[in-house]
Design a protein around this nucleic acid. Structure first.
Lengths: 147, 147
DNA sequence: TATTGTTATACTCTATAACTATA
DNA sequence: TATAGTTATAGAGTATAACAATA
């Protein structure tokens, strides 16, 4: 029982503060919505990128999602060992592997995306479909001025 | 030199994906904008909460920012040792400490907030003031249905 | 009994540097 | 010489459990 609610001071006018908070809420609910699948935000991201770009290599996936090469290794291994991603050597560049989803990976991604759709609407129920679209538009326009 | 740009597949329609990405952009630029001050997002958050609620205790700050009691200890210690926060015993509850900003802490927070204002406009230059306000409004309406 | 601050600890994420094999 | 994948490692951030002092 708190006697008076606390104030957020200068934080409440900062876009970054609200962004950080909303992102945290999403991450939290995302976790519980994928509970039991053994999947995490990054792993779903990787599956989606590989599905949309079959034959892509690790570096390409990491570049798209902002993950360092070194950190991609265990993530891809995790998905390969799980049978969600297939890794085949390519004759053009024998350093790299061509990645693609297995049937199991396709099914897994579909299951995740269905859960995620529910999860998103659970958090966005106060926004109309138009407002949700507007939010995506505003968010996608965030970023520093190109040099 | 990539021959064709990659696709984000099912991710591009997910609010959570754009949220995560935008939040990451903010976190990154935040860091560089506070470079040299030795401050981080959490520490600025704590200073702002203490300033707006003088006399608050560690638990209260943590509750406001979603930080566990155990993790507050070293954070508060860091700010006290730095001379930004004063910790005084209170007669009402001898378990807790009343926190408030020192003069040095006020100056530090002011400096950080000035840098943060620049940082925000650097990332939000594509949005009008009205759109920035709209974004905050949309973000603050995110969250699960109350039970 | 419940709460405040605390210690210890573990797990995830992220970042860097250095190695190998190919290009 | 540059790039793809890899290893090892270190630093944040975050989570739990348990304890002392106080309420």
């Amino acid at each position: 029982m708190s006697r008076k609610s606390i104030s957020f001071g200068g934080l409440s006018s900062l876009v970054g503060f609200h962004l950080r908070w909303a992102s945290g809420e999403f991450a939290l609910d995302f976790r519980t919505s994928l509970e039991g699948t053994g999947m995490r935000q990054v792993l779903v991201g990787i599956l989606a990128i590989v599905q949309a770009n079959p034959g892509i290599n690790q570096g390409g996936v990491g570049k798209a999602l902002g993950i360092k090469r070194a950190n991609m290794v265990s993530l891809i291994n995790e998905l390969v060992q799980r049978g969600a991603i297939g890794r085949t050597e390519t004759p053009q560049d024998r350093r790299a592997f061509a990645l693609k989803l297995t049937e199991e990976g396709e099914a897994l991604l579909a299951d995740c995306l269905a859960r995620i759709a529910e999860h998103e609407q659970r958090l966005l129920w106060r926004l109309t479909a138009l407002e949700q679209q507007l939010l995506v538009d505003l968010l996608s326009r965030i970023g520093p001025r190109p040099a």
